[in-house]
Nucleic acid binder design. Structure first.
Lengths: 340, 340
DNA sequence: GCGATAATTTAAAACGGTTTGGCAAAACAC
DNA sequence: GTGTTTTGCCAAACCGTTTTAAATTATCGC
């Protein structure tokens, strides 16, 4: 049913009906109520594409999905979708080929120009992120999940990676560890840099020299966790503790330690970052995994909120949110063995 | 820039330009080429919402995302997005609260009525799936990822769950196992039923009685894998082998076996289904995991293809695809120990 | 009860394309 | 050279809303 017919049945003009449904003040309460009732009775729904054309709004926000190791992606999306489910806003997913770094910037460009989204979310930014510069230049509203040092105003939601890793590392030092390895995320991403900084600062605060041979960067996969952990553990003296970037990395570290006959929580301590997944929990690992924790799903939900705020006019400079990260100690952390 | 202005610059009518860009035959090759060139030179792009309004097409396909344990979701989405990236079709993600089974059918209903999608993808169907009946009734094109026994024509893409599990189970029997436990997916889903059938048939073919105490159903989480495996292994006599529904389940089983001092690949054999994730690979587990394997990402990409075919008029009855599943034997499977 | 003001409602013009039906010009048959 | 097709292009109608500007009706002060 079209607006025209519907309005006719009500004995009103299309204008009034439209205003009534959109909650404009120029229509009397009585009329509004009648319109709302009849609409649900007769099942009238405005044609979404006509609305979008007329308003110039796309009614969607864009999310760019990387190709590799994005297991936290569905959690973030879940949160996003959860929050947006009640609004009339869609989520538009675009894929990006990780291997072609040029392609990504083009993709954002297309996304912005195409008018299919009202805003986009940028993930895993870099300190000087081209995408942010581009979106700002194009005037497309966007929220950064993470942060950037770039000299361009941008709204962001980030977790306190630096503080989390500083605390985790400090805790390991408190326990007596001196050789602490760090398996971090992809080089060049802001969150990796922040984590690096937290790690270094914690060491420095206790006068422990930084050893580049104990730090590795890479995607959050079980395989890299294993390979890096393995190569670190083959050094002499070997590290007595690990700080790791993800649950998958932690799985790899557990595996590596086990493959070398080392007992986690006694000979090797591990703290990893946990994004909180329903299908793999730090608490259930054996031994249970000490973790810095922050819910990816919650971040997704909040991101949706913030984007909506941006779209309804809240100034970019106001939208900065830094979330604290919990440190949860479990069995995988303990003082180093006597002989280490 | 609008079509009007663009056409004017070319000295053509909007009609001709529109046709030229859409590849209609009524326009000469020379003109078409000129239009295409100028379009990219001047950066003209049709307004997507105007196109959608005029054509009545939504230009998007819908995917409903469950809330729990959906770690394979991002892989499927990745495949989908990859294939759809080249088309002018968006992916629209809608969330569903798993706890409210009534909500899901309503969501599909809204999705279909709202006109925001041209087609939807239905996941993890049941033998008599309400959603399928609904979509058929509403005349909304849809592709089922999985299959249903329902008496309603539906296009589907499925993997041969039954055959895969039959082979896996048979292989374990060949190795000498007699007490084989099965940790399957959620009860009531077609794929779980198919796997159950494959399991039972394999047993029956060898005259091994079916023991309901060796079968469990539930979400694909590490935790459930652990709990079920643990309780099975506490039985006497205990099972000597496991067939499991997912990588996460396998992690749980590994953990359970280890927690009871049992060696996987010697005292306990395991075969799990592997959807192929970049961040967690069966080959890298210790011991490496024997698996039935089928790429979720490939299924996503192919699903996109099939949906496009449906939309361009291919009859539903023709769109049925059953994918064979590889069985890859690694270290986690071996003959049962002598004393078992 | 009248003019002024406020509260409602409406007709018509966007929004930016696609598509139908028609009309010249060019190509063809004879 | 005439009548018939075919080819290439165009004017106008249409898709279903929102929104602007104007018209109507209700309310109010006096």
């Amino acid at each position: 049913m079209k607006l025209r017919e519907f309005a006719q049945q009500l004995g009103l003009s299309p204008t009034t009906v439209s205003r009534a449904l959109s909650g404009y003040p120029e229509v009397s309460e009585k009329t509004r109520k009648r319109v709302a009732e009849e609409a649900s009775r007769l099942g009238y729904r405005p044609n979404i594409n006509a609305v979008r054309l007329a308003t110039g709004r796309a009614g969607a926000i864009g999310v760019v999905m990387g190709r590799s190791g994005e297991f936290h992606f569905s959690e973030f999306m879940g949160g996003l979708a959860e929050r947006l489910g009640t609004e009339d806003i869609d989520i538009l997913v675009s894929p990006i080929d990780d291997k072609d770094p040029k392609g990504e910037i083009q993709l954002y460009s297309r996304l912005a120009v195409s008018g299919r989204v009202d805003a986009v979310i940028v993930h895993s930014p870099e300190p000087n992120d081209e995408r942010i510069a581009l979106l700002h230049k194009l005037g497309m509203p966007f929220l950064v999940h993470g942060r950037s040092d770039i000299d361009v105003p941008h709204a962001w939601l980030d977790i306190d990676n630096e503080g989390a890793i500083r605390r985790a590392t400090s805790h390991l030092i408190d326990l007596g560890h001196r050789r602490i390895a760090m398996i971090n995320g992809r080089k060049g991403r802001t969150f990796s840099l922040h984590r690096d900084k937290g790690y270094r600062d914690a060491l420095q605060a206790r006068g422990i020299p930084f050893d580049p041979r104990l730090v590795a960067h890479g995607n959050f996969t079980d395989e890299l966790g294993f390979r890096f952990a393995r190569s670190f553990l083959e050094q002499t003296p070997r590290p007595t503790a690990f700080v790791a970037g993800s649950m998958m990395t932690a799985l790899g570290i557990y595996r590596a330690a086990r493959s070398m006959g080392l007992e986690i929580g006694r000979e090797v301590s591990v703290i990893a970052h946990d994004d909180v997944f329903p299908y793999l929990t730090a608490e259930n690992m054996v031994p249970s995994l000490s973790a810095t924790r922050s819910s990816m799903r919650a971040a997704g939900a909040r991101s949706a909120d913030l984007v909506l705020q941006l779209l309804s006019g809240r100034p970019t400079e106001e939208v900065h949110e830094l979330w604290p990260v919990e440190l949860i100690l479990r069995e995988s952390t303990a003082p180093p063995p006597e002989d280490a």
